[in-house]
Design a protein around this nucleic acid. Sequence first.
DNA 1: CCGTATCCGCAACGATACTG
DNA 2: CAGTATCGTTGCGGATACGG
Lengths: 112, 112
Amino acid sequence: MIQNYIENANFEDTGFAYTLSLISGKHKMVILYCLMEFETVRFNELKRYLKTISDKTLSTNLKKLEADKLIIRTEYPQIPPKVEYTLSERGKTLMTVLDQLCAWGEENRLTE
Amino acid sequence: MIQNYIENANFEDTGFAYTLSLISGKHKMVILYCLMEFETVRFNELKRYLKTISDKTLSTNLKKLEADKLIIRTEYPQIPPKVEYTLSERGKTLMTVLDQLCAWGEENRLTE
DNA sequence: CCGTATCCGCAACGATACTG
DNA sequence: CAGTATCGTTGCGGATACGG
């Protein structure tokens, strides 16, 4: 599986590098977890959960996640505006895999 | 599992964030994969596999991986120096989890 | 051979102000 | 409410030179 890629030394094209590129960055995982937990979340609501994120950074991250089809953005044309974000089916399948990474981390944290 | 952390909104302390911190960066995964494939690898050998990495960056990454107990550094006191790197048992268990991320990425790559 | 030291560029992130 | 615009900061990674 992984070994195939060593030969050509083309790691950018591995499924692994691809998966990581989807969730790289400081906040993407937290956003996904919030959507998994609360299912439907609005922009400012997310901002409160993340506590320290700026408008700009949150906006950028949401756009990337949407472009990667991990989340779904639903806009209600009204005043004041209302936008809801949810996990896509694709996003949900990714979360099941990430949960295993989480489990490994909890079981293998170094005792310092 | 994951949901517990949402309450306190302390994502830095999730097993997931911890696991990701171990493999964050541009090269760590590639290094681990090389060690998985070739088992015992020397410094300059690694450098050739990674192709574009600089001495400094490779050195920094190896130190982090070693500090996190994912790899083992063995130094042979001779002239010229010889240093070998291998996966630790802990590193090997991590690789099995990462292989699943790899599989997800291959099955869920977007057709563009 | 196996690094360290130094300098530097760039992209991500943050703070603040502002808009439909 | 849900962003955009602008500016400033910061940290990772790269290039090069040098050392034990």
